[in-house]
Simulated assay, not measured.
Amino acid sequence: MRKIIAIVGLTALLFSCGGGGTDEPAPAPVAQNTAPSTPTLVSPTNSKLCVSNNLALEWNASVDAENNPIVYQTEIATDNLFTQIVKTNEGTTPTFSVTLEKGKAYYWRVKATDSKNAASAYSTTFNFYTEGVAIVNYLPFSPSLIQPEINATVSRASVTLKWAASDVDASDVLTYDLFLGTTNPPTTKVVDNKTLTFYEATSLQATSIYYWKIVVKDNKGGETIGQIWSFKTN
């Protein structure tokens, strides 16, 4: 009887001390890969009138915390939503040489992707104009949205619409037509030849989707139609 008790006690002691387990170390945690930093555009500067259509796009190099190799994806488009992309490029250096059409407005952006497919966000979008032949006036750039954000929901019966626009012809005076309504595309012009870049929309219907767009005009007959933006009301 005493021998049986001793054997049971020894067995319990072995298990309590880890007997019968494995001596292999636990696997080391796998380091999480992070995306490279977002590139910042350098040249051509925003809203620049370039003296040539042969350009060298430049940006600041991204940083990768794990020191993975980085590839840059460059997009050039004729609209600021990049639905009309005319040039793309992939490269390992923060520059891209390209030849574009003369006398046109272009928009460009860059993102960085490391060798493990972790990608940064796209850079901010810059625009530029290529020098044309015998061009007297350049069209304004497409307007950019400030507020409200696309598809944002507003909780009041009024909202302040804000936008921005620019023109490489520094002496040009810009004015704006604003179209607003619940149909897409909006056809009701609520502002004509406005010089300010904001508008207080009032008496909005509840639980509705509103669409709006800006037409930018210069004082030389140039006109650029912006894309359609939208917001919702509670």
Rank of each mutant, 00 (worst) to 15 (best):
T92F: 06
N151K: 12
A105G: 11
Y129V: 04
T11E: 04
N184M: 02
D79H: 07
I146A: 14
I135F: 10
E131Y: 10
W163Y: 07
T202W: 00
Q73D: 14
N137M: 00
Q73C: 10
Q32I: 15
T99W: 00
T34K: 05
I209H: 01
D177Y: 07
E200V: 04
V42P: 01
D172Y: 07
Y107E: 05
T22Y: 11
A56I: 14
I214T: 04
L13D: 06
E149V: 13
W163A: 00
A152K: 14
Q32V: 15
W108R: 06
P140S: 12
K48T: 15
L161F: 05
P36E: 03
I146R: 12
S144V: 14
S52M: 05
S120C: 11
E200P: 00
Q205Y: 02
L180W: 03
L81F: 13
S115I: 07
F231M: 02
V159T: 12
S97P: 00
S47M: 10
P36K: 05
A28H: 10
F82T: 01
F126H: 10
G226H: 01
W163N: 02
R2Y: 09
L161H: 05
D167N: 15
L57C: 10
C50I: 08
N219I: 02
C17R: 06
A26K: 11
I146Q: 13
L14K: 06
K116E: 11
R2I: 12
S155N: 14
T124I: 12
K220L: 08
L55V: 12
T187Y: 00
S144D: 07
E75D: 14
A164M: 11
V215G: 06
K217Q: 09
Y122W: 15
T95M: 06
S171C: 00
F82P: 02
A164N: 15
Q32G: 07
L145A: 13
D64H: 06
Y129H: 05
I225E: 08
A201D: 03
W212E: 01
L49E: 07
Y176G: 03
V42Q: 14
N80G: 08
P29E: 03
Q84S: 15
Q32N: 11
L161T: 02
E66S: 13
A6L: 14
P186I: 01
I225L: 12
A105D: 04
E149Y: 11
T175F: 03
T202S: 09
K111Q: 15
I70P: 02
Y122I: 10
Y129C: 05
E101M: 11
A61I: 05
K48W: 07
I85W: 01
P29K: 04
K232N: 13
T182V: 09
T233N: 02
T83Y: 06
S155I: 13
V191L: 10
L161R: 01
G18C: 08
S62R: 03
V42L: 13
D114I: 01
K87L: 09
G91Y: 01
T153F: 14
S142A: 15
L10D: 10
I135D: 09
N127C: 13
